[in-house]
Design a protein around this nucleic acid. Sequence first.
DNA 1: CCCTGGCACTCTTCGCACGCGAGTGCCAGA
DNA 2: TCTGGCACTCGCGTGCGAAGAGTGCCAGGG
Lengths: 338, 338
Amino acid sequence: MLSERRLQVLRAIVQDYVGTEEPVGSKALTERHNLGVSPATVRNDMAALEEEGFIAQPHTSAGRIPTDKGYRLFVDKLAGVKPMSPPERRAIQNFLEGAVDLDDVVARTVRLLAQLTRQVAVVQYPSLTRSTVRHVELLSLAPARLMLVLITDTGRVEQRMVDCPAPFGEASLADLRARLNSRVAGRRFADVPSLVEDLPEAFDTDDRGTVSTVLSTLLETLVEENEERLMIGGTANLTRFGHDFPLTIRPVLEALEEQVVLLKLLGEAKDPGVTVRIGHENAHEGLNSTSVVSVGYGSGGEAVAKLGVVGPTRMDYPGTMGAVRAVARYVGQILAES
Amino acid sequence: MLSERRLQVLRAIVQDYVGTEEPVGSKALTERHNLGVSPATVRNDMAALEEEGFIAQPHTSAGRIPTDKGYRLFVDKLAGVKPMSPPERRAIQNFLEGAVDLDDVVARTVRLLAQLTRQVAVVQYPSLTRSTVRHVELLSLAPARLMLVLITDTGRVEQRMVDCPAPFGEASLADLRARLNSRVAGRRFADVPSLVEDLPEAFDTDDRGTVSTVLSTLLETLVEENEERLMIGGTANLTRFGHDFPLTIRPVLEALEEQVVLLKLLGEAKDPGVTVRIGHENAHEGLNSTSVVSVGYGSGGEAVAKLGVVGPTRMDYPGTMGAVRAVARYVGQILAES
DNA sequence: CCCTGGCACTCTTCGCACGCGAGTGCCAGA
DNA sequence: TCTGGCACTCGCGTGCGAAGAGTGCCAGGG
């Protein structure tokens, strides 16, 4: 087990390295933090920390930099989440309150996160699967062609075309619309299938084909998870990464373009609080030199989607975690209000 | 006026520079292109071209590179649009045909353009203003709260909440819905305002307030140009730009994040064909070292939106223009079918 | 009049040696 | 267990010289 002082040394190394972006040596450490011991002692501690794999040196005769393992320990044990200051909180709230619709909420959230953390922000649109149905609408576009519109409690709207096997009268349409809504409005997506199961039986034989088609389209829409979309912003912040540029930034940009990758990334974090995945903890190898800080957010108590930031492993973890958490909280509030 | 041979020299310089990314000297030119003259002659021509501002040299004793003005001449006079090969055309068509809805069409188009040109692709969603109305739907969410859904001929769906000044009955709602659709369905956005002007008069005094509110929301939606959205892809291609990295890529990424900037950029190109804006011809200074190749596309004969690519001024103009034109054409077809 | 070969000149780039300084590891002593 | 001292390692910046690419200019020839 590492002594208390060694942990302090590790903490100091992480803080200094994040601040200066340069390997930190024993002398500089003792000068900037009053550890009460000499550089030589710190050197011994450093040797021990290196032995354990928490820090490393880029070349012999350079200072030390934290490893992924070192950052992990720092995040888990040595640092808390730095809360946002009241003025910052107000600014967040004001900025988000100006949003006019769901797209705008998401867009503003992305900008906000990118600005606050000076990193790349990723916000997932509120997912369908955990939401509830607010309303289902059916429009007749042509005698045998309907449009199905699904509105969720988070304000998201999905529409689908339905080609009917047979013409469908206005009266039947109104009937179906009414029955459908009385059964599913306000219900959770997961419950819908069993609630509409026997619906075709209430209709004439002629109309049953169409009703079934509509229902299956509806169910399809509900489960269609790959419709999950997300918005990204602040990619310009990637240019602050390092000096060894193209190599670092290229794979990250590529990973960011693969929405599937990002969705998987966000999906993996099951923790109810803020989740941090550091460097090689990210499955995708393009993101091996980045850390992802994410958290779920939602309109009620429950999380319906995730948001987070992607940045260099050398990031200000407490600050970033604080910003992510605060933004998620306020977005949740905004969604609940609208 | 420049002699024929000097134009050939300029063309050769552009082609070589685009290929090698390195300043091209007189000797290399005569070797790679059989101009039938000696390096010394080419040097004289180069001096003349430099005098006129078509080419420049980075340092005193380096080869020449084209200036923005040189590229401009090249694009206007020296090179045509390189058509896509039949296999490429088939690939484009196949790729786009798999799309399931408008979002998907746009997303696929972005990917396709980015891959074909190996540059950053920008695709504007089909704009509302020049489209026609397919259907307007009104849903009652609460006694005094409606949802207005607008469906366009390009498959785009816009929805808005409407808070009514007074409760609005189901019968009135059905009435308004029917009247509204019979007037505006199939009509162009621009014509809608005059078509619905006198609609409130057909209703009871009680309902007129609500009807007016609905109408003004509808008109608002129609003109709301800033709702114009676009999708970007292929930013990873920026890493191929050059070696002098952060400086070049940073402002470009920033410009790309400013959707307003991009929309303005695309909007400026009035040419019915493929438009090329080179280097400083772009108003936004972050894009001063890039060229933008754009073209309008649409479901019918008329353009309803733009798409294009952003890349280094040193790009393969004929190939890029060919790709952009081909993609626009096929997207138009897809939109017309759906 | 235009093209060509030759020549001197300019600059960038690369390799190399050198010295500096930061930082380390280790050891003996308190 | 901590400390001060000391020798050692290496990366980095600097200066210099050679090499190479490319140019501009000029005089001669078709």
